Amino acid sequence: MVWVGVWTFPLFDPLATATTATAAALLILFELLYVYTAAAGFDGVGTPRMRAALFAAVAALGVTLAAVYGDHWLVLMLFVATCGMAVFAGEERPVTAIWVCLATLAAIVAVGAARHVSWWTIGATLVSSVLASALVGAVRQMSRLVRELHRTREALAEAAVAEERLRFSRDLHDLLGHTLSVIVVKAEAVRRLSERDPAAAAAQAADIEQVGRRALVEIREAVTGYRETGLTAELARARGALIAAGITADVLRTADPLPDTADRLLAWVVREATTNVVRHSRAGRCEIAVSTTPDAVTLRVTDDGPFAAATTPPAGNGLRGLAERLRTTGGTLHTAPRPGGGFTLEARLPL
């Protein structure tokens, strides 16, 4: 905190020279208690009742020191006001912080008048307390809103994954429900006819075999449709997933139509990269760009997440699997943090 230097002012008060050691010890105790309480307020450490109790201790010690020593010690009330904002401004009912600030201002006037502190000092302390409290309250509210945005983004990402799972399960149900019902009915017929009419039972068994083979073909087609979606469809799906997660999506494609193998592989890359951005990046913007040269196609996915340039996150199973797929066709996969913050994934395939 930029104004902590004023903590040393009370020690220069001539009225405290007779009890310098005691005054210094009490001032250090106040400083430590203030720092811990303000940090607990910002980080949400402990229960609201515990944080309120800590603030009460800070306020009691600050008012006591100002009332006993007066003069420069009145500046401690500034820290009482900012501590109240740090503790209460981020709660569900931040009006408590306003009442705490007003009570602190009243205490400044009362203590200053009782100790015969100059009105210029009292006025300066009042103005400083109001400005510092407003600053801390604004920062406290911003930190609360940022945490809420992060929680909302995570919830949206989980909802997008759940929606995709629901869609897949619904399609499988529609695809297999009728087929499995037919198989069950015919299996019951086989069981009933197996002893008295073997020929009819064999016919029913042949029908079961035919229905089962047809179901396998339909399942393969359905799974292929999910696993081998073309690049164009996957780009559209990625854009929708990013937007649903609260991430601004920029999709740029300047590539010509690609061969089937390259198209399917890059669709896999887009899916895995988008999943990582939604789940792990905490980014606000993501750009997906596809471009071609006469001999290669390049897919680049960049985000502005909080990865530091000096740290490289470990590659997960998904990225390792993508790198192996690309290597089988002569392609490469490169991942690295961006110098200005964020993360870049680049896949390159020969044409």
Rank of each mutant, 00 (worst) to 15 (best):
G240S: 12
V223S: 01
S133K: 04
A233P: 07
A25C: 13
I247M: 14
V117E: 06
T275M: 05
G46N: 04
L326T: 12
H72E: 15
F12Y: 10
T302Y: 05
A200L: 04
G225P: 00
A56W: 12
V130Y: 03
R165P: 04
W99V: 13
T329V: 15
L242A: 02
D260I: 08
V182R: 15
E234Q: 09
L74F: 10
A39V: 13
V45C: 04
V2W: 14
A38F: 09
A199Q: 06
E91S: 08
I183Q: 13
D174W: 14
R51V: 01
N317P: 03
F307K: 03
A107R: 02
L351D: 02
F9G: 06
W73E: 01
F343T: 12
P198M: 12
V182L: 15
L102D: 02
D260G: 10
D174C: 06
G230M: 09
D250N: 14
T232E: 04
T17K: 07
P313Q: 02
G84E: 04
V75P: 06
A249C: 09
V63G: 11
T261A: 15
I122C: 04
L11I: 04
G123C: 15
T293M: 08
L345T: 14
L319R: 10
R285C: 08
T312F: 05
R348I: 05
R253K: 05
A155L: 05
V270D: 01
A310D: 14
A206N: 03
M77V: 00
W3C: 11
R325W: 06
V4L: 11
I208Y: 02
E228C: 05
S181F: 11
T248N: 12
M77K: 01
T302E: 07
L156T: 13
L231Y: 13
M1H: 03
C286Q: 01
E272V: 14
W119I: 01
T125M: 06
F343K: 02
A203T: 00
D171I: 10
R282P: 07
I288D: 00
A310L: 09
R144W: 07
A157N: 05
Y36K: 02
L26R: 08
A283F: 09
V87F: 02
F42H: 15
R115D: 00
R213N: 11
D256N: 06
F343R: 01
T275L: 07
V68H: 07
G70R: 03
L322A: 10
T311P: 03
N276A: 07
L102F: 07
E209T: 14
V139Y: 07
R279F: 02
L266T: 13
A134R: 10
E346D: 01
H150Y: 05
F42W: 15
F88W: 02
A113R: 15
A283I: 10
L242D: 07
R51T: 01
A215W: 09
V139Q: 11
C286S: 15
